[in-house]
């Protein structure tokens, strides 16, 4: 393959690392993210599934589907087609297959939550210079700001890896570290507080005060994620009903054929860009 990849021992141990290199044969089409990215960074073993950022290109999506088809993958019931039309609107696709006694689940998203368009484009440019096709720590912090409790300790661990004072002040969830960096870099506070108002609390010098602000910030982020998810959940109600009717047919279809079927069915039922 061309471009960044994984060491052979990592691919031998972790099937999702090996799959990533299969997806990225010839060129980068996917970037490993979420739980397996945390494995890559040696933070935690949190997920037995694989998640990837998917390039918004139908040819790249079809290549990924071909790889999955070669493994005998099937769409999970309820999944959205792996199609630029829907992924451009923030939807995700979910497939799975068995390898011996292992069940491998593969999830794809073209527009990850909380990543702005400009940053997404930069991410796909920068990945060619990375050691491996894995979401970088700053982007992973944003992606992990979900409503799930279990993601927040991971954010703490990710932000603890940051060294640049600006990055630390914008993303750390450690009161003691924030207080220390704020004291060492007072010149950054005014500018960065416009992006992260809780930094103003560091002027109190109190870890308890900063901790309370961190919790408030976290609750707001969780609420925002819930709100986003509600929009998608509402938009896919008819799609879920439709799946109940065609599930036996689709789950028996080869991957590429199933994707085409799902795309045909989704027209008129599943909004491409929910609002």
């Amino acid at each position: 393959m061309n471009g960044p990849g994984f060491q052979q021992d990592a691919k031998d141990a972790n099937p999702y690392f090996a799959l990533t290199d299969e997806f990225n044969q010839d060129r980068i089409r996917t970037i490993l993210t979420s739980g397996q990215a945390c494995v890559y960074y040696r933070l935690a073993f949190q997920s037995k599934d694989g998640d990837w950022l998917m390039n918004l290109d139908q040819g790249d999506m079809d290549h990924v589907l071909s790889v999955l088809s070669s493994h005998g993958a099937r769409f999970r019931v309820g999944s959205v087609p792996l199609s630029v039309k829907w992924h451009d609107g923030g939807w995700s696709s979910h497939l799975e297959f068995s390898r011996g006694s292992e069940r491998l689940r593969t999830d794809f998203v073209g527009r990850p939550p909380r990543i702005a368009d400009g940053r997404l484009m930069a991410m796909w440019r920068e990945i060619h210079r990375a050691a491996a096709p894995v979401t970088d720590i700053l982007d992973l912090i944003q992606i992990k700001k979900t409503q799930r409790e279990k993601d927040w300790p991971i954010i703490g661990s990710l932000s603890a890896r940051l060294q640049d004072p600006k990055d630390v002040l914008l993303h750390s969830t450690s009161p003691t570290r924030l207080l220390a960096f704020a004291a060492d870099h007072p010149e950054l506070l005014e500018e960065l507080a416009r992006q992260r108002p809780l930094l103003l609390a560091t002027t109190s010098g109190s870890a308890d005060v900063v901790r309370r602000e961190i919790m408030t910030e976290r609750m707001a982020a969780m609420d925002a994620d819930r709100h986003r998810m509600r929009i998608y959940a509402h938009a896919m109600r008819d799609w879920q009903q439709a799946w109940k009717a065609f599930a036996p047919t689709v789950t028996a279809m080869p991957t590429l054929e199933a994707n085409q079927f799902l795309e045909e069915q989704a027209h008129g039922i599943l909004p491409t860009h929910p609002q």
Binding site: Q7, A44, G156, S157, S174, R211, M215
Partner: peptide
């Protein structure tokens, strides 16, 4: 299936760096 190392969702300080607590970064390949 729970996470490994176990997470402490209530914590918001460096103490909850579960990877460090279990030394994952310093293990051999």
């Amino acid at each position: 299936m729970g996470s490994f190392p176990p997470t402490r969702s209530e914590a918001v300080d460096d103490e909850f760096q579960s990877a460090e607590n279990n030394d994952l970064p310093n293990l051999s390949e």
